[in-house]
């Protein structure tokens, strides 16, 4: 029986780390993978989603709606920023790093000045359940389901819908797509907005479990970048398997030797993976296929 309890605990912890990595990384992966823009304001979109979600929940909206409101707000903010700041810089990928970094600093400090140093939380819903000697939070299982659901919806969106086809066409050969009548500007705008909305979704989902402060995005950003670097440019063949591998590494090392070992293990795993697979997991899988 104790073996079963331990197996369940390992699966739960891996799933928990997996959900955190997938949800924090997929917005970044879409913006980087599809558009080649390295978005250093990713954490601030997450913070935006979390703040809007918490504010909506405290205003009386049910939590799922509040989370969606957070995602929509972040997505809208993303589209505005794409139109004003990112669009003139598509030919200068290095400059987008500096520009988005600037956005990140302005937003963090602006939030601090306008909304103060902290925001009260909403509390985690659903309570807990017990398996063997351990008790677990139900909400974290919801987070795992949400991570899988997000991946599923994205897959359907990019392979089965007209927007997905147009987006992939625009990203692969922009001028041909344009010649065929695709409004590429709108597609770029929507793709960036989708990436930002996914960041906002991560923020909304984690808002009930975390401290709400202007710098909260930075708690996600390192893990998000690590996952995207290990995964490579493709979200399904890269981000998801990378999150699974890194999640398992992190969960087992943390249970064995504590948080510090978990953090070190995560970063060592990244170094090893990029040394062996410079184009990430997805680059390796795609090369195998061709």
């Amino acid at each position: 029986m104790t073996v079963l309890f331990s197996i369940f605990s390992f699966l739960y912890q891996t799933g928990d780390a997996f959900a955190f990595l997938v949800l924090s990384a997929c917005g970044l992966a879409i913006i980087f993978g599809m558009m080649g823009v390295i978005n250093l304001a990713h954490g601030e979109f997450i913070m935006c989603g979390a703040y809007v979600c918490a504010a909506a929940a405290r205003a009386g909206l049910p939590l799922p709606i509040a989370i969606l409101a957070g995602a929509l707000a972040a997505g809208f903010a993303g589209m505005v920023i794409e139109r004003i700041i990112i669009r003139p810089l598509y030919d200068r990928p290095l400059d987008t790093i500096v520009a988005t970094w600037g956005v990140s600093m302005v937003v963090t400090q602006g939030t601090l000045i306008l909304l103060g140093s902290t925001m009260p939380g909403t509390g985690t819903p659903f309570g807990s359940f017990t398996v063997g000697p351990y008790s677990y939070s139900v909400y974290r299982v919801v987070l795992m389901v949400a991570a899988l659901g997000t991946l599923g919806l994205l897959w359907v969106g990019f392979t089965k819908t007209r927007f997905g086809v147009l987006a992939r066409a625009t990203i692969q050969v922009p001028h041909i797509a344009q010649a065929l009548g695709v409004n590429t500007g709108l597609v770029y705008s929507l793709t960036f907005g989708l990436g930002a909305a996914l960041a906002g979704l991560a923020g909304g989902l984690y808002a009930p479990t975390m401290t709400l402060v202007p710098t909260m995005g930075s708690a996600f950003v390192v893990e998000a970048f690590v996952t995207v670097v290990v995964g490579g440019a493709d979200i399904f063949l890269g981000t998801a398997p990378a999150a699974l591998v890194l999640g398992a590494v992190k969960a087992s090392l943390t249970s064995w030797q504590g948080q510090l070992a978990g953090q070190i293990g995560l970063l060592v795993a990244v170094i090893i993976v990029i040394r062996i697979l410079p184009r990430g997991i997805s680059g390796w899988i795609l090369r195998e296929r061709t």
Binding site: Q13, S255, G258, Q259
Partner: peptide, 20 residues
């Protein structure tokens, strides 16, 4: 006894270590 690096925000596994 566990030491947590500054900036860490996810404690699921730590919580379980404590319960154990």
């Amino acid at each position: 006894e566990e030491f947590i690096p500054l900036g860490v925000s996810q404690f699921s596994q730590t919580i379980q270590n404590i319960q154990a």
